[in-house]
Design a protein around this nucleic acid. Sequence first.
DNA 1: CCCTTAACTTGAGTTATTCAAGTTTACGAG
DNA 2: CTCGTAAACTTGAATAACTCAAGTTAAGGG
Lengths: 135, 135
Amino acid sequence: MGDDDLLRKAGLRVTAARLAIMQTVRDGDHLDVDGVHRGVRRRVGQVSLQAVYDSLHALHRAGLVRKIEPMGSPARYEARVGDNHHHLVCRRCGTVTDVDCTVGVAPCLEPADDAGYVVDEADITFWGVCPSCQR
Amino acid sequence: MGDDDLLRKAGLRVTAARLAIMQTVRDGDHLDVDGVHRGVRRRVGQVSLQAVYDSLHALHRAGLVRKIEPMGSPARYEARVGDNHHHLVCRRCGTVTDVDCTVGVAPCLEPADDAGYVVDEADITFWGVCPSCQR
DNA sequence: CCCTTAACTTGAGTTATTCAAGTTTACGAG
DNA sequence: CTCGTAAACTTGAATAACTCAAGTTAAGGG
């Protein structure tokens, strides 16, 4: 299924800007809004930064992109969605690396005691220093 | 051991503002910087917002308070530190609730594949809707 | 009781993000 | 196909959280 179908299925209109955003996020590696903006303009020419914010917001609400926000750094977006994977973030350089879920399918989705909450997502970030910053 | 000793042991000077910050964070429930500021002024009178930022930063570096930053909301601080507990955050009202670690002591500290990172902290946030917002 | 330097104050600056108002465009209805 | 409308986009200003900088105060070792 193409990106256009995914958009339509989510009740969103298909525009060049949105297709370019989806491609850029998929090709990129946890890009921030500015990075997405640059990628989009390289593909389809001038698009305003606000359009990128707006579209990423819409895509996120529709579940087509995932948003992560490591503390102290701007929000980042990725295409892998719905597979409950997590992130390693480097304290030095801020690089984000995917980690698959520890034990099988979705063991991290449920807390021991949910305190009455209806939980729909688990957001797990491991903090450390990446190989190239360890030198 | 009193807060003053904790501060000294961390190589920090003991001031009324810092003691008040530590008390406020301990008494409060995941307060943001503004909440801490209010609590501190109630205890010791006028203290600048920047002093609160500065001190919280120092206390955090010293490991005396823990900082959490749920996406989309300002940073929050708590006194429970070093016990690897996690958080439930309400999507509606933003309330933060502590959850103890799922399986025993520190099972969540290590990812399945650390990709060469030296991991020192795991930050786990469960997103959902709290009991009082479910009505 | 000084002296040094950490801690604090005041005030301005930065950055990521949002708000608002007006214009354009996708796309379903006719 | 073309028309109307709401979604999408544009431009520009505003906001919130936080940081930076320069000068003042005060903790605590000598």
